[in-house]
Simulated scan of single mutants.
Amino acid sequence: MNLERDARHRQRQDDIITAARRCFRQSGFHAASMAQLAGEAQLSVGQIYRYFTNKDAIIEQMVKRIIDDRMAEVVVNSHTPKLPALLAWRQVTDEDDEALMLEVAAEATRNPRVASMLVEADSRMFDHAMQTLQQDYPQFSEEKVRACVEVLAVMVEGTAFRRLTPQKASADRLHTIYQQLIKQLFETEDK
């Protein structure tokens, strides 16, 4: 009986998060009201509060799920040389996730709770990327791996932001440059 109840609880949370994602994409975190979320989820506001204490708790669960998905993707794609192409052609796995994480960054400038969520999400991703690279490059020092992850994070997150503007260089040329940069980054341990 508990398994069935837990499954219903999880499904209701999923439904609320799906509705919240749509509302947040339409209105932003700050402007999306609990009434709007409830309407989108076809629930009452009171029903939503049974599953989440407030809007920040919904945002936190949404961010956790996005980061979980990204960490799983890193494991799957850690041995494929796709990153230069993704960066050059400004491709993303999930448009909504990218837009929502930009919204998280914007909301973090206004809301200390969301700012701490962003710091936690970044720490989880960074630590996960470090573990993955340490396995792939055991000859690198921890400092080298940390520097590589930081450079990759800047390239990926910068590209996510740059996707909002027209690309000003040829994707083919950028692909070559990204390949060179990443190759140099992982060639050898610094002295």
Score class of each variant (00 low, 15 high):
I16G: 00
T176C: 12
Y137N: 05
L3C: 03
A32F: 02
I67M: 13
G46M: 05
R50L: 11
A169E: 03
F29S: 03
D15K: 15
T176E: 15
K183G: 08
Q179E: 14
L152P: 06
A19L: 09
L87I: 11
S141V: 06
D14S: 07
E103M: 05
T109D: 02
A99P: 00
R110T: 08
I59Q: 01
M117C: 13
A41D: 07
V149G: 06
V63R: 00
L164R: 15
L185F: 03
E157K: 15
T165N: 07
A31T: 09
E4R: 12
R65W: 03
V151A: 10
A38V: 03
R65H: 13
Q13F: 00
R90V: 10
H79N: 14
A121F: 05
F24T: 02
D122G: 11
D68Y: 04
Q36M: 11
R22S: 12
Y178W: 10
S27C: 11
A171P: 12
A20V: 06
K168F: 07
P112S: 01
V75H: 13
S141E: 01
D6L: 14
V76Q: 08
R21L: 01
N54Q: 05
V104G: 00
A72L: 08
D68E: 14
H30P: 02
Q167K: 09
S123C: 10
R162A: 15
T132P: 04
T53Q: 08
L152K: 07
P84M: 05
M101Q: 12
R25F: 09
R110M: 13
R70C: 13
L86R: 07
Q91W: 06
Q184K: 11
I48T: 04
E40G: 02
Q61R: 00
T132Y: 04
G28S: 09
C23G: 09
A160V: 06
Q26F: 03
A88F: 14
R22L: 06
L185N: 03
V76M: 08
E107N: 06
Q26A: 03
V76P: 00
D94F: 07
D172L: 15
Q134D: 08
R10Q: 10
A85S: 13
E103N: 04
Y178Q: 06
L185V: 10
G46N: 11
L133N: 05
S27I: 01
G158L: 07
V63D: 01
